[in-house]
Design a protein around this nucleic acid. Structure first.
Lengths: 115, 115
DNA sequence: CCGTATCCAACAGGATACTG
DNA sequence: CAGTATCCTGTTGGATACGG
């Protein structure tokens, strides 16, 4: 039972649609990071969530996980070249999102129900 | 309680992250469509879901809803100029998604640990 | 034709505590 | 340090029926 997508856009969303996947990718675009570093960069994500999202991305081949068998443990997350191919999307989404946020900044509650 | 986004990308995802929002937008990019037409184009979406997603998009100013007070009822959905600004994102996501789908097409389970 | 109303199932996500 | 394990909650999405 493979995933059925109405359109390719949904396929893309299935990759970066997770709660922290976009920001994880965003951070990894320009740096290799350790688990604890990602935790510090994304404080609102619990370890469980972070692990989960990282595993998903890893399984999709978007990022790679390198474990160093040392003590204390050390794990590094790096974006793959495949993941790199998402840079354009991320950049586009980021710039649009910035505009969106600055718009809704001064107009937070625009739900003027004309009941 | 306003939405907090870790990064602008998440703001964008909050707009098109819904189950049918991407495909709705995709269809509306090049055509004004009626409710029943959207239903036919997206058969898997129940009327409730379609309405919900359309309302969300409308509330965000991405699409506009024009009701004709005639009988039988007639409603048209059109993308706004603001929504038009998402075209680039949609196009990028679509082309990436296409690649993704053709990759996973012949290789469903690609868990090749390159340890 | 264009929706709403209800109710329900599934899953994503969160809190907290613990381990190699 | 880098995770797991459990349990729990809330949101999202789905089925079905009905209304203007």
């Amino acid at each position: 039972m493979q995933k059925e997508f109405n359109c390719p856009v949904e396929a893309t969303l299935s990759i970066i649609g997770g709660k922290y996947k976009a920001i994880i990718l965003w951070h990894l675009l320009d740096a290799t990071l350790r688990f604890s570093e990602l935790r510090r960069l994304i404080p609102s994500a619990t370890p469980k969530m972070l692990t989960q999202q990282l595993r998903d991305l890893e399984h999709e081949g978007i990022i790679s996980r390198k474990v160093y068998p040392v003590v204390p443990p050390k794990t590094e997350y790096t974006i793959t070249s495949y993941g790199e191919s998402m840079r354009g999307i991320l950049v586009e989404m980021c710039s649009w999102g910035k505009e969106y946020m600055s718009n809704n900044d001064s107009d937070e509650s625009d739900n003027k129900e004309t009941v």
